[in-house]
Design a protein around this nucleic acid. Structure first.
Lengths: 333, 333
DNA sequence: TTGAAAGCGCTAACAG
DNA sequence: CTGTTAGCGCTTTCAA
């Protein structure tokens, strides 16, 4: 069937079969840049079909100087938010003719650097990441050929496109709802210490003042349910009994919920709990999570635009809203 | 700094700076295939360093005929088992100098075909997938240049390397444990109808006979927690009250658990529940899941070996074991 | 131990 | 509308 040895047809085989030059094959396969007579074109298409011809992606990428490849560095594949975001980015990317490649970094700066290196070596056109290194370190990224889009970052990093949900508004929404439920003794479970973006903490305290509340404590954990579980257990073991809790991600909320259950604290009767993300994960917990919802499709779209358009806005803040389920106390009979 | 226009150094720049030929640069970068004098080599390395030279992956792939790329088609990014498997495969692959690319197929045969197409267009060397199409359809895959490794498949598909946990043993382990807890009225929640592999159902009934039990019903759902939730709700609404439940994945167990909670059925007091997978997800549920654990690192390793060694065994069955947590009733005070 | 050069498969500028 | 051809950056054979 194929005329060359490897069993894989090249444009030359197609050209020969269709009795045209290789250029014409290229024009047909790419719909341009030159016009081709309809007859010729269909002859080429037929030949390509019959030889099961697929243009070699590496050759094309080499020639064009771009392989239409995007890299996404994911802190944790287990985190439901990233499961959804990955899928949304994948969908958005393929719609624009780009492929995606994912790598995990586990919120480890060293691993993150290695992941970037791997992706750059693969000649990705752009990298999406939720950076966990210092701003000074990020400076070095500017030496790379590829562009970067920083996710999960509410504060502009000079020189990089950034996109994230409106985290501060999320905190406001959560506190207001907790207060609306009559809760006054609040705590927040926040991610790892991250000197780059403490704006949520600022807003947390501002809101407390606004409502005339005693300043609720902020507990730190890494962005995993195990870590949040440990932090919550430590809090409860120390005797603290908040009546309203805000957790910075659905994934961590699972850990907090578990600690509460184990201490016999009923949710939402004894304490209201609101998380951030609004993913499917909140449907699986008991009780289901009331959550500040991130607009994941929009984040994916915005991220793609930022990566592909050099003149896209440097900082995109995406609105959030509330998904009311059970853990806040709204649906208790 | 760089002598060429794009700002990106090529082997020619390095060669010029190091005063050697481009061939020598190649020998040094790849540690072969020819020996290079230590002095010359270090001169080349220095030049490469100072120009921040990274070999172009597309050019290399084109020349070598392989880009060291592996594709993984994932039914669902949200499924905890795949979150873990993806990570394990990624790790295993990079350790061997391969990159990975993931695509979702949502257990949709059409999407699965498209995903394969995309990956083949990207020139992957091998594809890992848990196929959801008919065996006849899979025949066509043999036309592709790349090799395939079928995951989650307990029955050999002629002509393809297959790897999976010992599903049948998992069913045996689960039933034995349920019976050990004195449970006699069992049901199973199984994935979508899949004519290729019904061996677990056969074992399910065999085990019932062995224990002299009334044949427990098998409920079908898709491999998602929503779908399992619906199936379990329908069962409970119909008045069925099993005292022992086996669910074919952790992810689905979440849905079943939710339905039980909503119907006021206590786990494990009223019914024991055992799931399959043994992922972190079982730590997040309430109660925590007793589960048949899959050996994910070993599956990843086996899959890689199957993809890279043509003479690897055609069918690998990986042993499973039990992770005892709360949902079976073992830890009730 | 090093170098010259062919060629992987493709695109697109240029020429007809 | 179609064909010729240079060259993307790399590896490797062959020759020195």
């Amino acid at each position: 069937m194929n005329s060359n040895r490897t069993g894989k047809a090249t444009r030359a085989d197609v050209a020969e079969l269709a009795q045209v030059s290789t250029a014409v094959v290229s024009y047909v396969m790419n719909n341009g840049p030159k016009k081709v007579a309809p007859q010729t074109a269909s002859r080429v298409r037929q030949a390509a079909e019959s030889l099961n011809y697929h243009p070699n992606a590496y050759a094309r990428a080499l020639r064009k100087g771009s392989g239409s490849l995007l890299g996404i560095i994911v802190p944790d594949f287990r985190n439901p938010y990233f499961a959804l975001l990955n899928e949304a980015i994948e969908k958005e990317a393929y719609g624009r003719g780009y492929s995606t490649m994912f790598l995990t970094a586990h919120s480890d700066p060293e691993l993150e650097r290695k992941s970037i290196e791997k992706m750059v070596d693969r000649e990705v056109d752009a990298i999406f990441m939720a950076p966990c290194q210092k701003v000074e370190e990020l400076e070095r990224l500017k030496d790379y050929e590829c562009s970067f889009v920083m996710l999960e970052n509410n504060v502009q990093i000079p020189g990089f496109a950034c996109i994230s949900s409106d985290f501060c508004e999320g905190v406001r929404l959560a506190i207001d709802h907790l207060v609306w439920h009559g809760r006054t003794n609040l705590v927040m479970f926040y991610g790892e210490d991250n000197s780059r973006d403490e704006s949520r903490i600022r807003v947390w305290y501002e809101k407390h003042e606004e409502h005339g509340l005693r300043r609720g404590r902020v507990y730190r954990s890494r962005y995993t349910h195990e870590s949040a579980y440990r932090a919550a257990t430590a809090m409860l073991d120390a005797g603290e009994r908040p009546d309203g809790i805000f957790v910075v991600s659905d994934f961590e909320a699972g850990g907090v919920l578990r600690a509460l259950h184990e201490h016999g604290i009923r949710v939402p009767e004894d304490t209201s709990l609101i998380s951030f993300d609004g993913t499917y994960f909140g449907l699986e917990t008991w009780p289901q999570l009331t959550s500040v919802r991130q607009d994941i499709p929009r984040i994916a779209r915005g991220a793609l635009e930022a990566a592909l358009n050099p003149d896209a806005p440097g900082m995109q803040i995406i609105p959030v809203d509330m998904t009311i389920r059970e853990s806040c106390g709204c649906h208790v009979a």
